[in-house]
Design a protein around this nucleic acid. Structure first.
Ligand SMILES: NC(=O)c1ccc[n+]([C@@H]2O[C@H](COP(=O)([O-])OP(=O)(O)OC[C@H]3O[C@@H](n4cnc5c(N)ncnc54)[C@H](O)[C@@H]3O)[C@@H](O)[C@H]2O)c1
Ligand SMILES: NC(=O)c1ccc[n+]([C@@H]2O[C@H](COP(=O)([O-])OP(=O)(O)OC[C@H]3O[C@@H](n4cnc5c(N)ncnc54)[C@H](O)[C@@H]3O)[C@@H](O)[C@H]2O)c1
Lengths: 214, 214
DNA sequence: CCTCGATTGCGCAATTTTTCGCAAATGTAG
DNA sequence: CTACATTTGCGAAAAATTGCGCAATCGAGG
């Protein structure tokens, strides 16, 4: 029964969900795998196959009901509830993360923020006050935190991650440029724009087209 | 001769390069695929296979010379030269990007910044002055820009991307939560923390372990 | 100069992921 | 009620990716 669902499939579902939400806002009622695929740059067959891991959500000859499919995806991904997150490292990037309006509407609530630097500790951002990272264990002891966001310098990141894991966090969104080590029950996703750039340059490099149009 | 190299392989090379740079800073001279793999959480066989697309860089019985392999990877990825980038959208995130110290040391230079908002235009950040996005075409007309970084709200992102492509940019680092449409000769990498979170919750959701250790 | 433990590079097998192809539904139009 | 244009879900084929196994090679030590 528990057929293994590939990670790649899980990674695509949020993309489908985002597109469906957009279609929904535009008032669209139904969409075919064909159209959705064109919009997202994936093949219709892939969308249908991905969805088929979870059930039968479409109607032959019609396509998918946008609202219905969006709800199903939310349920599948666990987006039909709130997730509690903490941010560690409130520098440039940490500030941007804390004041980003894109998390809360999706059910991702940042409930604590920590930093090591005295000039940041105590600072109020939104309705959070930055606490000392040294007191993180205690601060998190009573509460249930699902996800830790790491935005410290690379040198501090692994120890911060260890502390988050100790505190019961089961997923890490890691902005620091390191390969994090975590126990197997903890998920990690890395966000590193430099790695993204460095893989794109491979293709740019060999592009012979080189002249800016005069 | 031009054996097709899988995209997944290209995506891993920067990760290897980053680890090698770290080993190099630690004064390590050689490393085996075994050790590198353990550090990065990939199998040694995968590392060897990936590298074998490009040549033979190791010595049997020894492993890889750290400096040598790092140089080779830099060459392969095109990191042995400078890349010129522009940032469009200088809000919270754009600020963090502009003042991020992690790009320049890797050869990624931000040479212009644009925004639509009068309260940001003219502002100096580092040694750049934010210019009006309306004048982007003209500002970029003379120069060769390799990569565009998009940090505008979603609603503006596609038109900004179109303008960047028009200006001759061949790669886009897109922070906006949209599925960008670009001509085939343009590369896009998306950075979207919400998508990352939304795929991790799939696994958290089904985790039965739920209680924070008292 | 021989032996031995270590480690690469790579052909090939195994596994994973994507794509194909089509029967079965669905809605529409006549 | 029938014909028809669509589009799904899914088994099976194809393609892509990963992992295995091992001959060849390296350096150290004697
Ligand atoms: N700024 C960006 O655009 C950007 C982009 C990608 C990745 N990153 C990465 O994100 C991280 C943060 O980048 P930034 O630009 O915000 O740097 P920053 O120096 O502005 O902020 C780092 C913050 O972490 C705090 N800190 C240091 N050690 C700590 C510890 N042990 N515990 C808690 N807090 C600690 C510092 O006091 C500081 O406030 C870095 O790893 C960087 O490589 C940044
Ligand atoms: N802040 C984050 O942590 C974060 C994280 C991930 C993704 N994002 C995404 O990055 C983008 C920027 O986020 P932010 O938090 O910096 O938002 P922001 O509102 O602080 O900044 C957006 C900036 O874009 C400018 N802008 C608007 N339209 C423009 C146009 N047509 N041309 C040029 N500039 C234009 C605005 O004037 C503003 O300065 C958004 O798409 C957001 O979803 C942000």
């Amino acid at each position: 029964m528990p057929i293994e669902i590939p990670d790649v499939v899980i990674d695509r579902l949020p993309v489908y969900a985002r597109a469906l939400a957009s279609l929904d806002r535009q008032g669209r009622d139904v969409v075919s795998s064909q159209e959705l695929g064109a919009q997202l740059g994936v093949t219709p067959a892939q969308i249908r196959k991905d969805l088929s891991y979870f059930g039968r959500f479409g109607k032959q000859g019609r396509g998918y009901n946008v609202k219905r499919l969006l709800e199903e995806l939310h349920q599948i991904l666990g987006l039909d509830r709130k997730w509690r997150m903490v941010v560690v490292g409130v520098g440039q990037l940490g500030h941007a993360v804390l004041s980003y309006g894109g998390f809360a509407p999706q059910g991702f609530d940042i409930v604590e923020a920590f930093d090591a630097d005295a000039s940041v500790i105590g600072k109020q951002i939104g309705d959070l006050v930055v606490k000392p990272v040294a007191a993180m264990r205690e601060a998190l002891a009573g509460q249930h935190i699902d996800i830790g966001i790491v935005a410290t310098p690379a040198a501090a990141a692994q120890q911060v991650i260890d502390a988050l894991v100790e505190s019961g966090v089961r997923a890490i969104l890691n902005y620091a440029p390191i390969a994090a080590h975590v126990p197997r029950h903890v998920r990690v996703k890395d966000i590193d724009p430099v790695l993204s750039l460095q893989s794109m340059t491979f293709y740019l490099k060999s592009d012979l087209a080189h002249s800016p149009p005069k």
